[in-house]
Design a binder for these strands. Sequence first.
DNA 1: CCGGGGTTTTAACTTAATTTAACGCTTATT
DNA 2: AATAAGCGTTAAATTAAGTTAAAACCCCGG
Lengths: 228, 228
Amino acid sequence: MSKNPTKILLAEDDQNLSMLLKNYLDAKGFDAHLFKNGKEAFQNFKKGIYDLCIIDVMMPVKDGFTLASEIRNEDQNIPIIFLTAKSMQDDIIKGFELGGDDYLTKPFNMEELMARITAILKRTARPENPSGIYTIGKFKFDSNHQKLILNEEEQKLTSKENALLTLLVEHKNDILPREKALLEIWHDDSYFNARSMDVYITKIRKYLKKDPNIELINVHGTGFKLLA
Amino acid sequence: MSKNPTKILLAEDDQNLSMLLKNYLDAKGFDAHLFKNGKEAFQNFKKGIYDLCIIDVMMPVKDGFTLASEIRNEDQNIPIIFLTAKSMQDDIIKGFELGGDDYLTKPFNMEELMARITAILKRTARPENPSGIYTIGKFKFDSNHQKLILNEEEQKLTSKENALLTLLVEHKNDILPREKALLEIWHDDSYFNARSMDVYITKIRKYLKKDPNIELINVHGTGFKLLA
DNA sequence: CCGGGGTTTTAACTTAATTTAACGCTTATT
DNA sequence: AATAAGCGTTAAATTAAGTTAAAACCCCGG
């Protein structure tokens, strides 16, 4: 199940820059759609489902701010990045007031744009599994409620057991590196924390033993692997 | 019941700029805490509950990137804005990779910083509920009138019960950190206040017991989570 | 100023979660 | 095979949280 590319609405009238942008974004794996003024852009915005907008402030026919406020009117949440030639602070303030998420002053370099896009998408991204419910062999694992359920029996988990098992299922059939677990759960990779983690691995193994098809194996010097 | 100001961690070694920043932010109604290097900043970060970090990249003792990654390790979500003297693109990319939310190149003007702070906080903000009326499972909770209502029955709450339950519902299905509750309600994180808070947790659990689908679980060493 | 009812804090005790310690076994290295 | 480092398991020690009751506090009416 491969993911759809992020669809970007690109509103920019400058011929050179716009093609440069579109090519760059497409090369980076995005699906960028280019429009040369605010009017065209808005007409298309209503049709397509976009994930992100990059809007030049100065455009003929309909300027970027007008476009942005129309878009905001349709969609409260879609991220908007403004581009502007002049670095007038009033413009910047206005852009943010309109609900812009970021603001780039020309000339900017593509790497920076890319970094800002990535940062915004990361913030906007929906968590992978908001329900927090996973299947492990015959078990249901509800990480939000810190419970491991087999048939009708509920096993309550402590916070650490829950955190560790959550990491393990997120890496199901794959290695969860020791270091990663230690940093995320214990916030520090030290001798004692590592020993503590081993204790929790034992506890989790004990719980999971009720389904003999599940294995929680160690990869020496590397990490653990949950097989189901 | 007025709201606490947004608490900002400010890490900046330049004497002039840092005081300028602190004064400006304080004047804008924030509660800015200034530290002159990464080490000091991190030590204090762990103690206080901050809402936003503004970090200079170039600092003595511990640089801004190191500080940011340590902070990210403790808190996945807190917004971080980097400040840098040089507009080196590599720095910018690195900043975003570390989970920075925004990046400002010196010299910047205060208005722009303000705009970016506002934009970030708007994204991060928890949805407000001016009515003060929440739903918790089968209950209605009216925080303005300090009442918990199930069917026709009204349970009056004391102000502490009310304040704590309000914080809990504002973080529904998410962790309410102990320190945050202690600082906001008891204004001081001490042993006895922590004990007192536990007493109130017990009381609230007793009230909520009437709906068996509601859980108020403890996350060891971290806080409480209200699940409904 | 005093007393009483409700609220909050302190105290004492209990239970649970987590870390540390101890010891034995396994895996890599030479 | 000897050695060292990594891991497994159990139990003890430590620290956090849960519960209940008593003490202290606070505010209002008399």
